[in-house]
């Protein structure tokens, strides 16, 4: 049996900007980075001065060749790693990365099926890469996004999603608080919402669902209930319950 382990690369933080009160976009320059497809992720490894290490996975918002990769991290209040990445990491600081990882939760320009993306919270990150890849390739297969958020202030990449809406329509859903004048009350995304706001099974879409585990589980079973074939649903869970 061959032993294959992808080695760790070193990345330096070269650009950072806040996305929301709790989320930050981080761009690392990673010499030796082989490029990535839309939807893939990296493992990030942090090492404390005494040698203690922690590893977490983060989706890649950027796509394609080049040695710069953009991540977007949302701070979990009691988390071990995310508060460090969002609040502490400074320009020029180095971390280790392994990847790109995952060959299933990806979108490639040669795909022809209509695409429905469904994100919960920071689950939008791999979809930002997919929207960018879709735009860059000029692919004519339709792609649209349903983005479920707690409150309007929690949107990651809102400006980019709005700017891109002629090409990829984003439908917004709010679970805790809605913007002024919004036509409906805040609430969990239901199967009825999915029926109203996503591509129907008759269009034979490929549907990608990403976000916290509970969100992903609920949306995926809602899609099956609506008549989507399980084979046409791809999921990525970010964790939590």
């Amino acid at each position: 049996m061959t032993r294959t382990t992808i080695g760790w690369l070193t990345g330096s933080l070269v650009h950072a900007r806040p996305l929301t009160k709790s989320a930050r976009s981080l761009t690392f320059e990673v010499p030796g980075w082989p490029g990535n497809a839309a939807g893939q992720h990296v493992d990030i490894r942090l090492t404390a001065p005494d040698g203690y290490q922690a590893v977490r996975s983060y989706s890649i918002a950027s796509v394609g060749a080049g040695e710069d990769i953009e991540l977007a991290v949302d701070r979990l209040p009691d988390g071990e790693v995310s508060p460090f990445l969002v609040d502490d990491l400074e320009l020029g600081d180095q971390i280790e990365l392994r990847g790109p990882l995952g060959g299933w939760f990806v979108w490639r320009p040669e795909q022809r099926a209509p695409i429905q993306l469904i994100a919960g919270g920071s689950g939008v990150v791999p979809f930002v890469a997919m929207l960018r890849a879709h735009a860059a390739s000029g692919c004519s297969a339709p792609m649209q996004l349903l983005y479920s958020l707690r409150t309007p202030d929690d949107a990651l990449f809102r400006d980019e999603l709005v700017r891109n809406s002629a090409r990829t329509r984003t439908t917004w859903h709010y679970s805790r608080a809605v913007p002024p004048g919004w036509s409906r009350a805040a609430g969990r995304l239901t199967t009825q919402d999915l029926r109203a706001e996503t591509l129907p099974p008759e269009d034979l879409p490929l549907t990608y669902v990403c976000g916290p585990s509970g969100f992903v589980e609920a949306v995926a079973s809602g899609l099956v209930e609506l008549g989507h074939s399980a084979d046409n649903i791809r999921i990525e869970r970010f964790g939590g319950n």
């Binding site: 922690a54 299933w104 585990s213 099956v224 399980a230 649903i233 791809r234 999921i235 869970r237 319950n241």
Partner: peptide
């Protein structure tokens, strides 16, 4: 390279 968890993470590619 492994870390302890008390919860039960789930890895799957499609609906249950």
């Amino acid at each position: 390279g492994q870390f302890l968890t008390g919860s039960f993470p789930v890895l799957s590619a499609g609906p249950t």
